[in-house]
Lab assay of single mutants.
Amino acid sequence: SIKEIEKEEIIKVLKEVNFNKKLASEILGIPLRTLYKRLKEYGI
């Protein structure tokens, strides 16, 4: 599903940037606030 793909992509990017959420949100092209929402939604 799209949610699974998105979750995997978020985890992959977070690992690449050593869990720097600000940098991860910039790489993913989403606002930091949205990233936090996704992390909560996906239980990351």
Rank of each mutant, 00 (worst) to 15 (best):
1 S>I: 11
1 S>D: 14
1 S>N: 13
1 S>G: 12
1 S>P: 13
1 S>A: 13
2 I>H: 13
2 I>C: 10
3 K>M: 12
3 K>D: 12
3 K>I: 12
3 K>N: 13
4 E>G: 09
4 E>C: 13
4 E>A: 12
4 E>D: 14
4 E>I: 11
4 E>T: 11
5 I>T: 13
5 I>H: 13
5 I>C: 09
5 I>M: 14
5 I>Q: 13
5 I>R: 14
6 E>A: 11
6 E>Y: 09
6 E>C: 11
6 E>G: 13
6 E>M: 12
6 E>R: 10
7 K>T: 07
7 K>N: 05
8 E>D: 11
8 E>M: 14
8 E>H: 13
8 E>Y: 13
8 E>N: 13
9 E>Q: 15
9 E>N: 15
9 E>Y: 15
10 I>E: 01
10 I>A: 03
10 I>Q: 01
10 I>R: 00
10 I>K: 00
11 I>T: 05
11 I>M: 14
11 I>S: 04
11 I>F: 10
11 I>C: 09
11 I>V: 09
12 K>I: 05
12 K>V: 04
12 K>C: 07
12 K>S: 07
12 K>W: 06
13 V>I: 11
13 V>L: 07
13 V>P: 00
14 L>N: 00
14 L>S: 01
14 L>E: 00
14 L>H: 01
15 K>Y: 11
15 K>F: 11
15 K>I: 14
15 K>C: 12
15 K>S: 08
15 K>H: 13
16 E>G: 09
16 E>C: 11
16 E>V: 07
16 E>K: 11
17 V>K: 03
17 V>D: 00
17 V>F: 05
17 V>C: 08
17 V>Q: 05
17 V>H: 06
17 V>R: 02
18 N>E: 06
18 N>I: 03
18 N>V: 04
18 N>A: 08
18 N>Q: 08
19 F>T: 01
19 F>D: 05
19 F>A: 03
20 N>Y: 05
20 N>S: 06
20 N>H: 05
20 N>T: 02
20 N>K: 04
20 N>A: 03
21 K>M: 15
21 K>N: 08
21 K>D: 03
22 K>V: 11
22 K>N: 06
22 K>I: 12
22 K>P: 06
22 K>D: 04
22 K>R: 12
23 L>M: 11
23 L>G: 02
23 L>C: 07
23 L>Q: 08
23 L>N: 04
23 L>W: 07
23 L>A: 10
24 A>S: 02
24 A>D: 00
24 A>C: 08
24 A>K: 00
24 A>F: 01
25 S>C: 07
25 S>K: 02
25 S>F: 01
25 S>H: 03
25 S>Q: 02
25 S>R: 02
25 S>M: 03
26 E>A: 12
26 E>Q: 14
26 E>T: 10
26 E>P: 02
26 E>Y: 10
27 I>A: 06
27 I>V: 08
27 I>L: 10
27 I>D: 01
27 I>T: 05
27 I>M: 09
27 I>W: 05
27 I>H: 05
28 L>I: 04
28 L>M: 05
28 L>P: 00
28 L>E: 00
28 L>G: 00
29 G>M: 06
29 G>F: 03
29 G>Y: 02
29 G>Q: 08
29 G>P: 01
29 G>W: 02
30 I>W: 08
30 I>G: 00
30 I>M: 11
30 I>E: 01
30 I>P: 00
31 P>Q: 07
31 P>I: 03
31 P>N: 11
32 L>Y: 04
32 L>W: 04
32 L>D: 02
32 L>H: 02
32 L>C: 06
33 R>H: 14
33 R>I: 11
33 R>V: 11
33 R>P: 08
33 R>K: 15
33 R>T: 13
34 T>Q: 13
34 T>D: 15
34 T>S: 08
34 T>K: 08
34 T>M: 10
35 L>A: 00
35 L>K: 00
35 L>G: 00
36 Y>W: 08
36 Y>F: 09
36 Y>N: 14
36 Y>D: 11
36 Y>R: 13
37 K>I: 10
37 K>H: 09
37 K>Q: 15
37 K>W: 08
38 R>W: 15
38 R>Q: 11
38 R>M: 15
38 R>I: 15
39 L>V: 04
39 L>H: 01
39 L>N: 01
40 K>M: 12
40 K>C: 11
40 K>T: 07
40 K>D: 08
41 E>W: 06
41 E>R: 06
41 E>G: 05
41 E>V: 05
41 E>L: 07
42 Y>R: 03
42 Y>Q: 03
42 Y>W: 12
43 G>E: 09
43 G>V: 05
43 G>R: 07
43 G>M: 08
43 G>F: 09
44 I>V: 07
44 I>Y: 10
44 I>T: 05
